[in-house]
């Protein structure tokens, strides 16, 4: 039942008249990082669904993973997405030097490679559709397409974000808000590389293991 003790000796401080300012950049990137962890759990749910539906009986007589994935062709996608991530990462190296041109160039390269990635993916989808392997065909194909398309949707959203950032860099320069967004976008874009590693290994490579 003892009352809390006072700090030993000296005057106690009750008010902080000039509190140390919160770090606005890290507060926002932390918030964005938490969003990404939440997003990562969306992929956890999708991978869990893939793990359950990647069984012969879930193909319902239709094509199995073995027949729809082509890891060699998908390796070009791997290269595109990783190089795009590298290009954006190098843009943030240019940001360190405060080079507007360098940042813009890196973002443009990242966008071009992102578009290549999405083009390859779309082409893959069209080919599969033409073969009759559509999401409506079986439980396995449903989860296959939805998993890959979810990653693709993230990529498309990232491209839109990059477009907005290009405009904001030109218009505002490197203000605190713009720099914070560029850092958050870096986290977002690099996160897509990590997701793709999982997709490539657990869908494409594992798909051709007998």
């Amino acid at each position: 039942m003892s009352a809390p003790k006072s700090t030993a000796g000296g005057a106690v401080q009750l008010w902080e008249y000039q509190p140390k300012p919160h770090d606005p950049v890290s507060t926002k990137t932390l918030g964005f990082w938490l969003y990404m962890l939440s997003d990562a759990l969306i992929f956890a749910g999708l991978f869990a669904a893939y793990g359950v539906l990647d069984q012969p009986m879930n193909a319902a007589g239709g094509p199995t993973a073995m027949q729809v994935v082509h890891p060699v062709a998908a390796f070009w996608q791997t290269l595109a997405v990783l190089t795009s991530v590298l290009a954006y990462s190098l843009a943030t190296v240019a940001l360190k030097a405060g080079s507007r041109a360098g940042v813009a160039l890196g973002i443009l390269a990242a966008m071009a490679l992102g578009l290549v990635f999405l083009g390859l993916e779309l082409n893959d989808f069209v080919t599969l559709f033409a073969m009759g392997a559509t999401p409506e065909r079986s439980g396995f194909l449903s989860v296959f397409f939805v998993l890959i398309a979810s990653h693709g949707l993230h990529m498309a959203f990232g491209l839109l974000w990059m477009l907005v950032m290009l405009v904001q860099i030109m218009r505002f320069g490197f203000t605190t808000e713009v720099v914070t967004r560029l850092l958050s976008l870096r986290l977002f874009w690099q996160f897509q590389a990590s997701v793709w590693v999982c997709v490539y290994v657990f869908v494409y490579l594992k798909g051709i293991v007998p």
């Binding site: 319902a60 439980g139 989860v143």
Partner: peptide, 20 residues
């Protein structure tokens, strides 16, 4: 979209919904 995640037939797994 007419997919078959949780349908009875066509390779869906309805317990997957319950699980998720």
């Amino acid at each position: 979209l007419g997919t078959h995640f949780f349908t009875g037939g066509q390779g869906g797994n309805l317990m997957l919904y319950t699980d998720l």
